[in-house]
Amino acid sequence: MIKIVDLYKSFGQKYVLRGVNLNIERGESMVVIGGSGSGKSVLMKHIIGLVKPDRGNVMVDGRDISRIDEKGLYETRKKFGMLFQGAALFDSMKVWENVSFVLMRERKISSEEARKIAIQKLKMVGLDGVQDLMPSELSGGMKKRVGLARAIAHEPEILLYDEPTTGLDPIMADAINDLIIQMNKRLSVTSVTITHDMHSAYKIADRIAMLYSGKIIETGAPDEVKNTENPVVRQFITGSAVGPITGAPMLMQ
């Protein structure tokens, strides 16, 4: 469904992606792990065409999203729904207007009907009675849920989750994990999640890929990744301060 081939991206002198290759099959839940600043967000922005690569391709359903014209890009984006790290709700609109944003713009349905659909989507993510609130009146966890309701409102085929559990308390984080699993099953979507939360990764992934030094250095099922021999991946998943990522001698000083 999504095929990333030899992707390169740099910002000025900073090389972020240096030849990323990754295949994401239809219907699977792929989790990309990696440290802060490893380029996970940049990779995700390439998948939905927010950033153009210096080299390489991102194929979505056989179309190269990095090389198509604007009209084609917006058409392809209709296949996607994305949950942002900070939810990125439109703060000038009520919750229900956020959720039904695309429906009202694209499908030209009445605001009454859009409101009904929004309430139904909000119920799907476990929210009731918040439709008339403004985003500023919601807690972090509620914002993420509204963001998720907005992402699924137009019934996309692919869902992208940008650090879905970051900034939430452990219980709310686990509730979001459950919600992601539930959404993926119920809507039978392909999903790509980027995170550094290993508990979340093990729980929601069909496959995990690790991004390090601008490349995917390991791909496998959660159990395979857990038992990997790769010292870089081992250090990351065990959360050790000493190892090849940080460089032991530097930390000893």
Partner: peptide
């Protein structure tokens, strides 16, 4: 500017809106 730094402009893009 606030919409840019809180990713609301990116969100518009992902919702297929220029």
């Amino acid at each position: 500017g606030t919409m840019r730094v809180t990713e609301q402009i990116d969100a518009l893009e992902t919702l297929a809106t220029s």
